[in-house]
Amino acid sequence: MELEIDSISKSFGDLQVLNQISFTASSGMAMGLLGRNGAGKTTAIRIIMHVFPPDAGQIRLDGKPLRNGLASIGYLPEEKGLYPKFKIGDQLVYLGQLRGLSRKAAARSVNYWLERFSLAWYHDKKLETLSKGNQQKIQLALALLADPEIVILDEPFSGLDPVNAQLLKDIVREQVDAGKVVLFSSHQMSYVEQFCDNVALLDRGQIVLRGNLKQIKREKAKNRLYVQLSGDPAASGQRLSSLLSQHNRLAETVESIEASGDGSLIHLSDTGSRAHILSLLAGSGADVEQFRLAEPSLEEIFVEEVGESNEKQTV
């Protein structure tokens, strides 16, 4: 299955929230929709959920327009909340029925998921008696209740302790392995990194980066060189930068050198200069301990992409 978001635009009044965004989420591969607060993630999700129509563009599932697909989408909203005064079992069955399950099937599914989250004991308790983390688990159970083909999780990890986060990770992986289309929205990069095969980075209503996370990292790594010389890190860093600055041609392509761990991270504007640096180091007689491409973390990519555009805005 393939969920294809094609050139979606949406404005509220004079404010353009989404501008021609496109990305694709495939089954068996988790998709991460990233962006800062207010970037348009929730609006994009709401359009997928048919809460309101897009001004332009189309959403397709396996090439066909996604219509009335409510029943096959499971959704964990960012703003978590249900009826605090109602019994947990009752409200889950109710919402399961709204999502197309029969009463019996809903009740069965509720029992399964409560069991799964070790919350079966709370079936007849009011929601407000649960801790915040447990309420979040109830919400997740709700998202998965109708065994949806598409699972959309908006900030699923906020408020979970490490044990519950692990439980959530296991369940999400299970969903991915079961061939579901899983769409994550988050600004917690470490979780996205662990899960998502593909990412789309949204900034002020536009996709600024999109694709396979590994490829993106590899692509970004081409211009990032990690070099570690033996000896005192500070002194060897000094030595490295003086070495590079002496070389005229390299001085142009080296954008920056910064300390990173026990070595230095060199940003290049031209991937071709890697060979020059290697030969330069070999000729200088320096004792090279490590010379490799440095893959950036997703967080670094995020800050680089979104932080940069922010600077542009302020200028």
């Binding site: 959920m49 809460v51 409510l70 909203p77 909340g81």
Partner: peptide, 15 residues
């Protein structure tokens, strides 16, 4: 109250 306790978020995406 459905709005203030955010149950609306689930309702509006379910029905």
């Amino acid at each position: 109250s459905e709005k203030s306790n955010r149950a609306m978020e689930m309702l509006i995406t379910s029905a």
